[in-house]
Design a protein around this nucleic acid. Sequence first.
DNA 1: TCTAAGATGGGT
DNA 2: CCCATCTTAGAA
Length: 206
Amino acid sequence: MNDLTTYEKLPQSFYEREDVVQIAQDLIGKYLVTNIEGIITVGKIVETEAYCGRNDKACHAFLKRTKRTEIMYARGGHAYVYLCYGIHHLLNVVTNKEGLADAVLIRAVEPVINVDGMRDRRGVEITGKRLTAGPGMLSQAMGITTRLNGMDLLGDILWIGQQNSQAQVDIVSDVRIGIAYAEEDALLPWRFYEKDNRFVSKVKKN
DNA sequence: TCTAAGATGGGT
DNA sequence: CCCATCTTAGAA
């Protein structure tokens, strides 16, 4: 059941590519895996957003390199996890070369392995799409906290895999969510999600 | 030290 | 649709 051998770990080269928007798109249909203190969970990535450090006002690293954003400047293939609204842990995948602060926010996954474990973390009364249909929810379900900030995605705690024969997924692009402060950059179609997947997060008005 | 967010989520 | 959220980064 918990057979991870069918998930091939994405290589370093996947994350070091220059086009963060392309990477965000490519991550749809891949599998997010966590092994937190022996508890393994896997979710299929169904929604992502791209953030570009150099020309995107919505990006935390735009025009600033601080303690929090430092990890985004590392080479691709690391996790950037930060706390939002004091409560929610949000997972990003750092991309591009060292010194170029790009990242992809993982906004939603569809539970694949260990749904019970996810429910244990979310709360017994939580079922269905309320399990992982949002960036804060999926982090809680998969045991992701700011302790995992800076984690190497080629390690064995937190990584992303693909299946040999990946099913064809219909990908839709749209504007990103909750970034009205980014002015004209809020209009960039840098959110991607799998069409008709019920775990895609609810669209929120900006 | 202090202040002000802030890539949300849940309830009505 | 409305609003509680509360830790922490970032500045002074």
